[in-house]
Structures are given as C-alpha cells and as structure tokens.
Design a protein around this nucleic acid. Structure first.
Length: 573
RNA sequence: CGGGGCGUAGUGCAACGGUAGCACGAGUGCUUUGGGAGCACUUAGUCCCAGUUCGAAUCUGGGCGCCCCGACCA
C-alpha cells in the first residue's frame, strides 16, 4: 500500500475529548474516527488490525470445531419476550419496527436467535455437540460509552453458542472454550486473568471473564496473592473469620434505644463492636415481594449475590413507607417477629456471631442477644456478603487484593436456561425421548480487544503493534528525492509486493524525514525499513524494529530475504 | 438516569457585549530533505432555535451534541 493513497491522516494532537491512551493513539494514528458517542468508524488502518484480530479468533474457533455462520441483526421481538429479556435488558435493548409494524430487537447478543435456529431442526443426540459462532455487529444502548473503543454502543463481537446433550458433555465444551480463549489472548499477546463473574441478564449459573489488567478497565475484581483465586467483585467469595461464636447464648432482651438510624448510631448507643450488630436491608423484587437481607454489621450486602440467591430478576430498596406498612420502622428493622410477608435472607456470617443487637421493628426500640435459629429462622441462608480488598481468600490463608481490568472475553454456562424458556428446543436422545439442549455461550469484543492491545503496546511516541495483528508488517520509508533513492525504493517495494509481504510504502514526496519518522512511530508497524542517501552510500537499507532503538544496516541484496524471514508470522502451538 | 465539565476551521487553542484571530493541517509555487522544515499566497469556523441589546462567539432560556465520575456490559 502506498501511503500517499492511504485514507486517513495522523493528527499531531488528539482531540481533547479523548482521555484513554488507546483512544488517543488510535485517533491520532488514523485508525478510528468517531461518528457519534460510542459509535466509531474503523478507518483502513484500524480495520486491518480489526480483521487480523478476527482472523486469529476464527482460526482458534475453527481449530476446536466451531462453525462460523451469520444470524440476522434484527431479532424478532417475540423471541426476546419468550425469555423475559425484554424486561431484564430494558436499558440496553434497542428496538425497531418495519413497515408492517413488526417489532425487532437490534441484536445485542444472540442466544434467542441461535436457540430459535436449532429448534427449526429436529436434531438427535448423534448431531451433538456443536458450537456455532458468528462475527457480527452488536447494538447495546449503553448508558455511558467511554474510553474510545473500550465501551461503545455498537461493536463487532464474536459470539459462539454451544449445544450439548447434558451437563457432563457441556463441561468438556466449556473447558475447551476456556483453553481456546486462553490461546486466542496468548496469540494476541494479552495476558488475561480469568475471573469468576456473574451471568447477569445473559442467564445461566456461572461464567468466567477474561480480563486484561489495566487501570482504564472497568471490571473490578479481587485476586488472592498467589493469583489462584480471582473473581469479579460482584461475585467474589472470601473466608469468613469467626467473631464471638464461643460466647454463651444469652436471653433475648428488648430495650429502649433513642438513637439515630445508622449503623454507627447503634454502635455508639450500645457500646458494642460493629460486628455484633446486624445490618438489615429491606428490598423489593419484581413481584413486589419484600425481602429482608440480614448480615453481620461489619460486612456489606452484595446485591448481585442477593439477586442470585433469591432468584430475583430485579431488586430495589424498599421505601420508608413500605417498611412502615409491614409493621416495622426504618432504622430499627429486625428479622425477629417480623411480618410473615417478608422473606428473611441471612448471610452465612450470622453463624460467626452470637448475641447480636439490632432493631425491634419499633421506633427507638432495640433487641439485644439476637441469635439466628433461636430468635428467627431465615427463609434462605447463604453468601450475600460483599468481598473487599484485605479480606482472606476462600482458602483462608491468602489475602485478597483489588484490581481493575478490561473485560475482553467472557464464557458463560447457560445450562437449560434458554432451552427451558423457549418451547421446542429439544433434541432426541438415545431412547427416542425429547430432551432440552445444555448450552453455553462465549463472547469476545474485537474493538475492545484492539483497544486493550494499544493500552499494552505503546510508548510515548505511539503504538507498537505485535506482528500478529499489525496493519502491515513493514513500514518502508524512502528519505529524500534523489533519483537513486526513488529507483531503489520502487524496486524493493515491488519485490515486497511480489512476495506478498504487507508493506506500507511511505512514498509521500513532500514529507520531511522527521514527519515520516513521527508518523511511523505513531502508527506502530513492527519493522521500519529506511532507504536514504546515507544508507545507499553503504549499499544498504536501514532496519529498525518499532519499540527498539537499535538500527541495523542490511546490504541491499540481502534485504528482501531478511524481511521475509522476519515477517514470518509466528507459529503458535 | 444522577453529578461535574464543555461545544469557535480537519486538529489544538485565543477573542472585555463592539471588524472572529493564532498554530498545525490542507492547497499552489519556489527552496529544503536523517526526527513533525523555510518563504509567499490561498483555504476553512462561532452546534441549533428563541430572547435581551444599537450590536451576541460572549448574557438569558430551551434544544441538540460531546467528555469525565457513578449505577450496567464484550
């Protein structure tokens, strides 16, 4: 490619709205341009990188038997209604109507579409397993796009959907996909951390995020010091340390407590440690059922965990009025003698304390010596506690550290979530009976991956692309206008083209060396080859790898072979 | 959606309520050619709609748009 023909220009300064390094560099180097908030043009250079990333993903997906296909971008809205997702994803789902007033969702993920596809076929266990994937533009009406390509409203995602005959078979598929993702990110040169995460509106019981650690990332997670345990903060478990469960159980006692409504007020009033207090959080789910979450006072309720434990679709805090309506009092809520309408959900931490204090469902009245089991029997008990940096990892030895990263990929167990909700998504088993498919799904955002790579591979002058995804392998710069240089340059350029080496040939005649170098550094092509009067005086071309300062003179006659050997794409196995 | 900031030329910045200017870019010509060259000429702009005013980029109201922080996600 002749640079004089390349569409897209470098910018000396980044537009001021760009803050993230990847955003600034991609903009400045002429890889992307903004259309509207969270919607970007990929310019020719940017698209070449994007397609290289795509190729790597495709190779790895195909290697493990994935089959690429393509689903429509407009999804019949009825499908989303069938799985309740018009409700659970209301914030992000974009809709359109056609001329017949038929409603469609603009695909933001495609579980329903793929399930709907496979139920159009009568398949048998002999057809299983299979894994279908696509690269397609996804639409998500994000509340706030940010950081250039880091979070956008429209992006190309590789999404894959696996269909297995049962959980045991699925587990193999899941493990295979985990390894495949690891290979993909390894090939891209991104060391990712695999963290446990919440399935959110995607559904299913568990999932893992592939996170590239970075300050500009939005995924907050906790890792043990040895790195063996890593989980998204919304999911992270931790080791519960015992507090006073050796204490003798005392009789329940109600006392007057003229105090404020906060936890600190309780601590001050009773002169007892915070852990001995009970934190009571009144929530309301989508069916207007009231749920009281109770937890040890030194811990916080994790609403994601609460959502999962109670199998709720949505949860919100109850209003003061609602609390009074069920016969309690804000700031003095208690699971003891509470209205039967409220489902009490207790955190495991309440088993680590005895003789707790909390409200008495009356203004200015508190209870002392509250003990789980004796004084109240929770409807559900489980882990609803928010993990924090400094807590012990589940092994009880390592400390947890907080970290941030860019979520570049995600693998989900879906189980029967969709195949139960969507009628007729069954295959025929060995006995001739219909059985639902056991599913998983697997996503990678390409633009975000590209941004993550720039976050990693750059210096103060610009991007430093790894060869695996670089837009070109060689940036060839002739300096000066001398006829000898021109002839030598054109010769090497046509030879490189003949041997199929991807080269960006900076043939712009009116650019000074300084400008060509600056652009080359900014664009970040791995190998820079210069021809100039100086180099020709030594019958050589000058080679320099981006990111290294070492410059090497290579005799003209050997240059072609040298480039060829250097530009062999690294084989990965 | 809540909070904060901001909309002036392709990009970065100026302009007290009084002629919209500078740098880079782009174009033409000449010179120059190893780290964003020099000279000359040229090109291109106040987000939109109202209002206040003799006069609005500037003040007021509304709209639209963008960025940053939070609640969501590849």
């Amino acid at each position: 490619m002749r640079q004089s023909n390349l569409f897209g220009k470098t910018l000396r300064e980044a537009p001021k709205e760009a803050q993230a390094i990847s955003h600034r560099l991609l903009l400045r180097a002429g890889f992307i341009r903004e259309s509207a908030a969270g919607r970007y043009y990929f310019l020719p250079l940017g698209w070449r990188v994007h397609e290289r990333i795509k190729q790597i993903i495709k190779e790895e997906m195909d290697r493990v038997g994935g089959q690429e296909m393509l689903a429509p971008v407009l999804h019949p809205l009825q499908l989303w209604e069938e799985t309740n997702r018009t409700k659970t994803t209301a914030f992000e789902l974009m809709k359109v109507k056609d001329r017949n007033e038929a409603e469609f969702a603009l695909g933001g993920t495609a579980e329903e579409m793929f399930v709907d596809l496979i139920r159009k076929f009568k398949l048998s266990y002999k057809d299983l397993p299979f894994n279908l994937y696509q690269f397609s533009t996804k639409f998500r009406d994000e509340m706030r796009p940010r950081g250039g390509l880091l979070r956008v409203k429209e992006f190309v995602m590789k999404d894959a959907y696996s269909f297995d005959r049962n959980e045991a078979e699925f587990k193999k598929t899941y493990e295979l996909m985990r390894q495949t993702y690891k290979r993909i990110f390894d090939r891209l040169g991104l060391e990712t951390v695999i963290i446990e995460a919440d399935n959110g509106y995607i559904g299913g019981e568990y999932c893992h995020e592939f996170v590239f650690p970075s300050e500009v990332g939005e995924s907050k997670y906790l890792v043990s010091e040895d790195g063996k345990y890593a989980a998204h903060e919304e999911m992270a478990r931790f080791y519960l340390q015992d507090k006073n469960s050796q204490e003798k159980i005392l009789p329940l006692k109600e006392v007057t407590a003229k105090r404020g409504p906060t936890m600190e007020d309780g601590v001050k009033f009773h002169h007892l440690p915070p852990f001995q207090q009970m934190k009571d959080l009144m929530m309301v789910n989508e069916k207007n059922e009231m749920i009281l979450a109770v937890i040890r006072g030194d811990l916080d309720v994790n609403e994601t965990k609460l959502l999962r434990l109670t199998k709720s679709l949505t949860l919100r805090h109850a209003t003061e009025k609602e609390i009074k309506n069920i016969g309690s009092w804000p700031g003095f809520i208690s699971p003891v003698n509470l209205s039967k309408k409220v489902k009490v959900v207790a955190d495991n931490s309440l088993r680590t304390i005895r003789n707790a204090y909390t409200g008495a469902n009356k203004k200015y009245r508190d209870l002392l010596n509250v003990n789980i089991g004796r004084d109240y029997k929770p409807f559900l008990e489980g882990d609803i506690a928010q993990a924090q940096a400094g807590y012990l990892a589940p092994d009880g030895k390592q400390k947890l550290k907080a970290n941030r990263g860019i979520e570049v990929g995600n693998i989900f167990q879906l189980g029967y979530h969709y195949t139960h909700l969507m009628k007729g998504s069954n295959f025929i088993d060995e006995e001739g009976k219909e059985k639902p498919y056991y599913m998983g799904c697997y996503g990678i955002g390409l633009g975000r991956t590209m941004a993550a790579m720039v976050e990693k591979y750059h210096d103060e002058k610009g991007i430093i692309w790894p060869e695996t995804v670089a837009p070109f392998l060689v940036h060839f710069l002739p300096l000066g206008t001398d006829e000898k240089i021109k002839v030598a340059a054109e010769k090497l350029y046509s030879q490189l083209q003949e041997q199929g080496t991807e080269v960006l040939f900076d043939d712009r005649p009116d650019k000074t060396p300084g400008e060509k170098f600056a652009d080359a550094d900014l664009i970040g092509i791995p190998l820079r080859v210069v021809v100039s009067e100086k180099s020709l005086a030594q019958k050589s071309f000058e080679f320099k790898n981006r990111g290294e300062n070492r410059v090497e003179l290579v005799p003209v006659g050997e240059s072609l072979a040298r480039i060829k050997s250097q530009s062999q794409i690294i084989k990965y196995d």
